[in-house]
Every structure is written in structure tokens, then in C-alpha cells.
Amino acid sequence: MQDTVAVALITSLSTLAAAALTGLVGALSTRRQLAHQLTVARQESAERWATRRDELRRDAYVGFLSACDAAYRRLDRRWVEPGVDTATPGYDETYAALRAVDEAYNLVLLEGPADVAAAGRSVLASVTTEYAEQRRLADEPGDAAVPLRDRHRERWLAAIEVRTNRRVSFVDVVRQALGRDG
């Protein structure tokens, strides 16, 4: 009888040990799977956030370039058409276009990164400088019926070159920031 009890005791202890070992292995396996799933979820979340950030940045950059294009059209008009925007000194359509560039630049500042913001500041400065120069040149004595481009051809060509160079530099920096080098 004692042999039967001993066999029963050994059998139950081995069953309990096997159950505990199975539970431990199961718990470790589950823990490893949960850790892996958590890592995958974090990576997916980081990728979604990076994609969203890139979309926001791209939208800000495109908005800035669009505002620059509108300002460039107004500046071009001032160069080639005599007397444009002279009816309201201090505030005109070209000034309004420059303000739109400034507002679009605020989004570029917020979205960053710093090198894109610096390139955008350079574009903004060139547009503002060109506008100020146009106003100064228009105030100089001379035939107001002759377009600024014809009266100050060298300044017009230099302004176009600066504008183009700054814009190209901005686009190059933006491409790098968005991971599109080519």
C-alpha cells in the first residue's frame, strides 16, 4: 500500500512539475510574443508619424513655393508694366503677395527642419529686397511711362538671377529634407 501511495505521490508531483514547467514556458513564450508585437506596433506608429510629418512638411513647402510664385508674378509685372501698383503708396497688390509669402514662411518655420527654414528665409529676404528695390527705383526721377526693366536692365537681370538661385537652393534643401535627393 505504501508503494501505491509513493507511486501516486510521485506521479502527482511529476504531473504538477510538468504543468508548472508548461505554464512557465507558455508564459515566457507569450511574453516574448507580446514584446515583439509591442515593438512592431511602435515601429508602425513611428513610421505613420514620419509619413504624416513628411506630408505636413511637403504641404508647407509647396504652399511657400506657391506664394513665392504669386509674388514673383507681381514683381515681374512691376518690372515690365509702367505705373503698376502706384495708386496706393505703401500698400499694393505686390505688397499683399509679399505678405502671403511671409505667412507661408511661418509654416515652413514651424515644420522645419532648420536648414529648410534658413533656405526659406533666404528666399523671403530676396523677394522682400527685390520689392524694396523696385519701390526705390520707381521713386527715382525719370520717365514713368518707361518700364523699370528698361530703365534699370542690369538691376532687373540681377534680381531675376538672385530670385532663381535662392529658389533652386530652397528646393534642393527641401528635397534632402524629404529624402528625395534627385
Rank of each mutant, 00 (worst) to 15 (best):
M1G: 12
M1W: 08
M1N: 09
D3C: 00
V5A: 12
V7C: 03
V7N: 08
L9Q: 05
I10S: 08
T11P: 04
T11I: 05
S12K: 06
S14A: 09
T15K: 01
A18F: 02
A18E: 02
A19T: 04
A19W: 01
L21P: 01
T22C: 08
L24N: 03
V25D: 00
G26A: 15
G26Q: 13
A27T: 08
L28D: 00
T30L: 14
T30E: 07
R31A: 12
R32H: 10
Q33A: 14
A35W: 00
T39C: 06
A41Q: 12
R42A: 07
Q43C: 00
E44Q: 13
A46C: 04
W49Y: 08
W49N: 08
W49H: 08
R52N: 06
R53S: 04
R53V: 11
E55M: 10
L56P: 00
R58M: 10
R58H: 12
D59K: 13
A60S: 14
A60R: 05
G63M: 07
G63Q: 09
F64A: 04
F64I: 09
F64C: 06
L65H: 01
S66P: 00
C68A: 07
C68D: 04
A70M: 01
A70D: 09
A71S: 13
A71C: 15
D76R: 13
R77A: 03
W79S: 06
W79I: 08
V80I: 12
P82G: 04
P82Q: 02
P82V: 02
V84M: 11
D85H: 08
A87F: 11
A87K: 15
A87R: 15
A87T: 14
P89A: 09
D92T: 13
D92R: 03
E93C: 05
E93D: 15
A97N: 09
L98G: 12
A100T: 04
D102R: 14
D102L: 08
A104E: 06
Y105I: 00
Y105H: 15
L107K: 12
L107W: 10
V108P: 13
L109N: 11
L109S: 12
L110D: 02
L110R: 15
E111W: 09
G112C: 00
A114G: 07
V116E: 00
A119Y: 03
G120D: 02
R121A: 13
S122K: 13
L124H: 14
S126F: 00
S126G: 03
V127R: 11
V127F: 13
V127I: 11
T128H: 09
T129Q: 12
T129K: 13
Y131A: 06
A132R: 14
L137S: 02
A138Y: 02
A138L: 09
D139E: 14
E140F: 00
E140T: 09
G142R: 03
D143P: 09
D143L: 06
A144S: 08
A144H: 02
A145E: 09
V146A: 01
P147L: 01
P147T: 02
L148T: 04
L148N: 03
R149D: 09
R151A: 09
R153Q: 04
E154P: 10
E154M: 07
E154T: 13
W156A: 15
A159S: 15
E161R: 15
V162Q: 15
T164N: 10
N165S: 14
R166V: 14
R167V: 10
R167Q: 10
D172E: 13
V173S: 04
Q176F: 01
L178K: 05
R180T: 06
